[in-house]
Structures are given as structure tokens and as C-alpha cells.
Nucleic acid binder design. Structure first.
Length: 491
RNA sequence: GGCGACGUGGCCGAGCGGUUAGGCACGGGUCUGCAAAACCCUUGACGGGAGUUCGAAUCUCCCCGUCGCCUCCA
């Protein structure tokens, strides 16, 4: 079965096939770097990280472009709004570019911790002003934009005569207009739904560039069109982002692509993929509401709503346990559950590494493996795929103890599936650290000492050792003939 | 007001016409020096109502509720 993905554009799952196999062009809207990376950033990054990893696993040569937005995006919806990065710069009393650099670094740090692979290309908006200007110029030449007072706007009314505006979001312009609030400060535009491609800058505006229309800065949506098309051509295979970007951001991108390149642009991308949002106790998390939890806070537990901190993989696992198109409600309980579940799987993996093959198998591995990949192929159903691993986790200790048997071939296939899916595709990290080997030997020694104490009926000492091990996060499994151990939560 | 999504057992979360999802937590039992783990067993679910169907958590309609987008946001 081929990989199928839900396409927002067509509102259905479609088999994925690249335009120019084996190459795949994928563009994902990255962060606007003016604040600490939060749970929403983590979810989006992990979602598309898994898609990226899976496409590569399937043998595609993927060029993955994820931008850094380091300019523009006004606070309000009027011409007088303040650029968010500039506002941050003013608050922190640093240069705008320092704001961008600082938060880009924090974003990278957080994503690295979550084992999110860096994209092939990570372009910045400020680094691609010429491409944006060129695109705007061409849109003007095609007659789909107009210049007013040093600003350039996309003429949606004109565009609608030739292309469907609202195709991605399912929006109807008349209704949109009727239902929208009265907006102030839009005097320059011919119609309220026109949007800026280029904005005239006041002399005091800190970030501005020369353009054919005077000093100014790019509009809200042009950077993604310009950069994606610059690196991937048009149309390209996959365009991704958060659900909240569908309108107006992605709708505007499609319009810009058509306005610039005509029907050849073909909705800019074949597949439009959107991940759902993270909620906190059922409520939307957003920068503007100020109720967001940062990735760093999850690690340290230093947020009023967090009971304690958890390692990065707990968060990654939590994200993976939900389908990317469902909302994910974040809570202490959910995070704790995810961490425990992660530990259980990783302990099973380490046990699996120690299993010895036998002459024959007592159960089938290949059919299980097929079901795992069928889940991934079904619109990246990571939750269903993980569920299948828990099924196996129960059997691994039996394999280890010889209560179930696998042949060399089956055992290798099982191990390969665990490694490929859990680590390579889902991007989880195993428990090992640089200290793992040394740590393991110390635990082993302590376990043996306890066994000896038990043999001598020195239960006080034996229980003391057990409690101490528990405190550093070692869980003991006593069998009649041996004692095994695995990694648990720290007491 | 328009567009869209969703309501699944204590919590999280798959399923999209008929088979146990799964995870976390919980109860009883076996085992154990005591525990843990394991195993066995049990409990407990599909917001409400009507309809389609041999059969619905899954399709249709209505109602209730929640959330998102329509303004920057992943």
C-alpha cells in the first residue's frame, strides 16, 4: 500500500506520488522568531519531521525547506500595527536582528533536544528580499496587484475573475466580507480583502529595504511564496504548516503563486498538509493569549501549570501518540503517561537486543511488521503504529526468557522493524547516553549484591538496595531464577 | 453571523458499518520473604434523540455542548 496523505486542498486522503521522482520538494512554514519556542512549535516540527523521515525512509530524495521568519508580520490588522520583531527589540532594548538571532538559536536548541532533524535548507525572509521583490514585480506585470503610496497590494477582486480565491480554506469572499468586522486603516486598499505584498516604511521603521516602490518591507505572506518557489520550483510536492495558517496565510500564498506564474502554478503545491493545534486544558494555546508553555518549561517543569519536568522524549512521545490532525490536549497527566509509555517501549527495546535466536519461531513477525507500515501509510497514523509496538513489548520479555521463540531471520526482522520505525522514522531516541555502559555495570553490580543478600536472608539489606535503586530510577524485575532490571521514573 | 473540526470508559487517545485498539491510572486473584514485575480475571465507552440497515461509536437528520478559523500565531 502506498503512502496516503490527507490533502487540505481536496479534503481527502490521496496516494502520495512526487512530481519528479525520486525527488520530493517539501516546504513547511517555520517560526516567526520573536519568542521562546512553545508546544505548538514542537508539535508542528515533530509532525513534519516524521513526514520528512518517512519519505526518506521510503527512498525519496527530499529537499526539505523550512523558513525562519525574521521580519514583518504586524501586530494588528491595520497599517499602523507594529512589527512583532521590532516590538520585541524595543522591549529587550536590542537590535531587531539580535532578536531574530536569539530566538532562532533557542528554536534550534529546543528542536535538537526533541531530535527534530534540521531541514535541508532553512532560509530567512531577510535573506530573500530580492526574490520577494521580483515576485511582486511580476505579479504587478500580470495585473493582479496595484501600487498605492509606496505600498503594493494584491487585487483579490481581479484575481477572483481568473482563479478561485478561498479554494483552500473553503471560504466564500462575499460571506467573508459580510461577516467581517469593520476594519480601520484600510483606506489604501481597493477592497478590504486585498492584502499587502509590500509596505511603505516610515523613516523610523528599523527594518526596511529599497524597492522599485521606495523604501519598505515585504508583506505578510510573500516570503513563503518567494522562498518555497525559489528553492523548489512551482508547483512543488508538499506544503505544510499549522492548521491556523490555512487562512489567510496559505490562501494568500496560493493566490500569489497564481498571480505570478499563472495556471502553471497549480495551487503552488500538490499536497497541502496541516497539523492540528495543541490545547492546554481544552483551551487554545497562543502567543496572544499568553497561556503558552514553552518547550524548555516542559523539560524543567518551571511553569505554574506543570507539576514536574520531563525529558524531551516524553514530549515527543506525547505528540506521536496522537494523530497529527487531531487536537492534542496537553496536561500533566498526559505527559506523565506518555513518559511512562516511552520508558516501557525503550526497556523492551534494550531487552530485545539481548534476545538469542532459536531454530524456529513460535509466532509471525512479518505480518505484524506489515501492519505497522500500513498504519504509517494511512496518513501517518503514528498512534496506531505505536499501539502495535506495545503489543510486542509484552512478548519481548518472554522471548528473552525463552517462553516464546524466534528464528534468526525473524529476530532480525523484528529488531530491524523496531529500529527503523521507532528511531529512524518516528525519531525517538533510545535510553543510552554516553554514561550508559558505565552506569549499566554499576547497576548490575548492585543487583548482584542484592541477590546475594537475599540468598543470605538479609532482607533488610536487600530491600535497602532495592529502594536505593528505585530512587535513581532503576526498576527491578524478580524472577525465580534471575533478576532483571529496567529504567523507570525516578522516585 | 460565515467556514471548519470535535464530543469514545478516571485521564490521554486510535477506530470511520459487523472482529479486544493502545497507553497511563484502578480493583480482585496467583506468584513473592515483603514488594515490584509477570500472569489470570473483572469493571468500565462511544454527548442526547430520531432514522437508514440484518447489524452503527462508525452513515443521515435534529438537538445539546466544546473548540478553532474569519486579525499575528505551529
Amino acid at each position: 500500500m502506498p503512502l496516503t496523505l490527507y490533502n487540505t486542498l481536496t479534503r481527502q486522503k490521496e496516494p502520495f506520488a512526487p512530481l519528479n521522482p525520486p525527488y520530493v520538494g517539501m516546504y513547511v512554514c517555520g517560526p516567526t522568531v520573536y519568542g521562546d519556542p512553545h508546544l505548538g512549535h514542537a508539535r508542528a516540527a515533530i509532525t513534519f519531521d516524521v513526514l520528512y523521515r518517512y519519505l526518506r525512509y521510503l527512498g525519496y530524495r527530499v529537499r526539505y525547506v523550512r523558513n525562519i521568519t525574521d521580519v514583518g508580520h504586524l501586530e494588528g490588522d491595520t497599517d499602523e500595527g507594529e512589527d512583532k520583531i521590532l516590538k520585541r527589540a524595543r522591549l529587550e532594548r536590542i537590535e531587531p536582528i539580535e532578536v531574530a538571532q536569539k530566538y532562532t538559536a533557542l528554536y534550534h536548541k529546543a528542536m535538537d533536544a526533541l531530535n527534530v532533524l534540521r531541514p535541508s535548507i532553512e532560509p530567512t525572509a531577510t535573506g530573500h528580499i530580492p526574490q520577494q521583490i521580483a515576485m511582486i514585480q511580476r505579479i504587478l506585470e500580470q495585473g493582479y496587484a496595484y501600487v498605492v503610496n509606496g505600498s503594493v497590494y494584491l487585487d483579490v477582486e481581479k484575481y477572483r475573475q481568473d482563479y478561485p480565491y478561498g479554494i483552500l480554506s473553503g471560504r466564500n469572499i462575499e460571506e467573508l466580507l459580510a461577516g467581517s468586522r469593520e476594519l480601520e486603516g484600510q483606506g489604501e486598499k481597493k477592497h478590504p480583502w486585498d492584502f499587502a505584498l509590500w509596505k511603505r516604511a516610515e523613516p523610523t521603521h528599523l527594518m526596511q529595504w529599497d524597492s522599485p516602490w521606495g523604501r519598505g518591507y515585504p508583506g505578510w505572506h510573500i516570503e513563503c511564496s518567494a522562498m518555497s518557489i525559489h528553492y523548489l520550483g512551482v508547483p512543488f510536492d508538499i506544503h505544510g504548516g499549522g492548521l491556523d495558517l490555512i487562512f489567510p496565510h496559505h490562501e494568500a500564498e496560493i493566490a500569489q503563486a497564481h498571480a505570478c506564474f499563472g495556471k502553471e502554478a497549480h495551487y503552488q503545491a500538490r499536497f497541502w498538509i496541516h497539523n492540528n493545534l495543541v490545547t492546554i486544558e481544552g483551551q487554545k494555546m497562543s502567543k496572544s493569549l499568553g497561556n503558552y508553555i514553552t518547550v524548555e518549561e516542559v523539560f524543567t517543569g518551571s511553569h505554574p501549570r506543570l507539576v514536574q519536568g520531563y525529558p524531551p522524549m516524553a514530549l515527543r512521545f506525547l505528540v506521536l501518540q496522537a494523530h497529527y490532525r487531531s487536537t492534542l490536549d496537553f496536561s500533566n497527566e498526559a505527559l506523565r503517561g506518555a513518559y511512562r509509555a516511552y520508558l516501557r517501549l525503550m526497556n523492551a527495546y534494550h531487552r530485545l537486543l539481548q534476545v538469542r535466536p532459536h531454530a524456529y519461531s513460535t509466532y509471525m513477525v512479518s505480518s505484524w511488521r506489515e501492519r505497522v507500515f500500513a498504519a504509517l501509510d494511512d496518513d501517518l497514523n503514528t498512534a496506531a503504529a505505536l499501539a502495535l509496538f506495545f503489543q510486542q513489548a509484552d512478548d519481548i520479555i518472554k522471548l528473552y526468557r525463552g517462553e516464546l521463540l524466534l528464528s534468526q531471520v525473524d529476530l532480525e526482522l523484528l529488531l530491524k522493524t523496531w529500529q527503523e520505525v521507532l528511531f529512524e522514522i518516528l525519531g525517538l531516541l533510545p535510553l543510552q547516553s554516553v554514561e550508559w555502559e558505565r552506569w549499566q555495570r554499576l547497576v548490575q553490580l548492585t543487583v548482584r549484591l542484592r541477590q546475594q543478600a537475599r540468598a543470605e536472608k538479609n532482607f533488610a539489606l536487600a530491600d535497602c538496595l532495592r529502594d536505593e535503586l528505585q530512587r535513581v530510577g532503576v526498576k527491578l524485575l524478580d524472577f525465580p531464577d534471575e533478576t532483571l532490571w529496567e529504567v523507570g521514573e525516578r522516585a
